[in-house]
Write a protein that binds this DNA or RNA. Structure first.
Lengths: 161, 161
DNA sequence: AAAGATTGAGTATTCAATCTTA
DNA sequence: TAAGATTGAATACTCAATCTTT
C-alpha cells in the first residue's frame, strides 16, 4: 500500500537522482497528516459553532484550571500564532460572550482574559466530540503504534522547541 | 525530557480526569511539528524569493518531468488547497515569469501550466537548500527512527487519503 | 448538463507601528 | 526604555458563483 508521498518520492528519484530526498518521507507526511487532521477536526468544531482558532484559546484557558484566566501574552506563548492574531481572536470571543477581558489589578499594562460560564460550558461540550474525532482519525493505528509514534514525535519536538 | 504536549496532557488529566485525552499525544504533536517545520522551511524559501505556496507549485511541475506541464486541476489534486487558491498562485507565478499558461490544444476548456526555464532553474536551485533544511530539522532522529516514523505516518495517511 | 478554470467577497493570519503603563 | 497589548495594511486562503467549452 502506498500513499501520496511515496509517489512524490518516486518522481524525485527519477527526476533528480543526484539528490537525497529522504527527509521528505517524514516532513512531507507530517505536513499532510496535519492538514488532514485539521480539515476533519474543523468539522467537529463547526458543529459547536467554533473553529480551530477559537477552540484553541478556549481550551487553553479551560485546561489552565480555576479561575480559567490567562494573559494575552501567556495565550500567545501557548499558541503558535502571533500576538496580533491572539488579540483578534479575543475580540471575536469577547463579542460572543465566551471570554471577558479585565485589566490586571497588579499591573496596569496587563490584561486578564477569563472564560465566562458560557465559554466554559461550550468548551466542555465540544471537547468530548473533538477527542472522539481524533480517536477516529487514529483508528488505523494500534495502541502500541500510537505510543511509538507519539514517542518519536516528542523526541523531534524536544529538539525543535 | 518533556515537550509542550506533555504539559497539555498533564493539565487535562488534572482538569478533566474523566476524559481520555490520549489521542492528543499524537494529534497535538503532529500539528506542532508541522507548524515548526513550516516556519523553518519558510526561511529557506524566502532566501530564494519563494514561499511555501510558490515552491509547492513549482516543485510539483518539476518532479512531473518533461515537459514540466500540468493542468490547474492536476495541480489542485496534488496540493491540499482549493482550485481557487491554485488559480491565484498561478497568477502570481505567471506575473513573475516562472510559469506560463497556455490553452490545451485538444480541449478548449483545459489549460496547460508549464515551468519556464527561469522557473525550472529557480526550483532546482532552491530544492537542495530545502532538503538541507529538512535534514537539519530531523537531525535529532537516527536513520532507523526516521524510518519508523515515516512508516507509521504512511500507515496513517493510507487510512486517511 | 458537466468539466475546467477563474473571480470576487469574506476571513484569519502576519508584520510593523503604535499606545499605555512600569 | 522596556513590557504588554492592540491596531491597520497587506497577504493568501476558502467558499460560492460564474464563465466557457464539451
Amino acid at each position: 500500500m502506498t500513499d501520496h508521498v511515496d509517489g512524490v518520492l518516486d518522481q524525485w528519484a527519477h527526476e533528480r537522482p543526484d539528490l537525497d530526498v529522504s527527509p521528505m518521507a517524514v516532513a512531507g507526511r507530517v505536513s499532510r497528516v496535519a492538514r488532514l487532521f485539521a480539515a476533519e477536526t474543523a468539522r467537529t468544531f463547526s458543529a459547536h459553532g467554533l473553529d480551530h482558532a477559537s477552540f484553541d484559546v478556549l481550551a487553553t484557558l479551560r485546561r489552565a484550571g480555576p479561575p480559567y484566566a490567562l494573559s494575552p501574552t501567556a495565550l500567545t506563548r501557548s499558541s503558535m500564532v502571533t500576538s496580533g492574531a491572539i488579540s483578534q481572536r479575543l475580540d471575536r470571543l469577547e463579542a460572543r460572550g465566551l471570554v471577558v477581558r479585565r485589566p490586571r489589578p497588579t499591573d496596569g499594562r496587563g490584561t486578564d482574559v477569563a472564560l465566562t460560564d458560557e465559554g466554559r460550558a461550550l468548551v466542555d461540550r465540544a471537547l468530548p466530540d473533538h477527542l472522539a474525532t481524533q480517536e477516529r482519525l487514529l483508528a488505523a493505528l494500534s495502541g502500541e503504534q500510537r505510543g511509538e509514534l507519539a514517542a518519536l514525535l516528542r523526541e523531534l519536538l524536544v529538539s525543535l522547541e
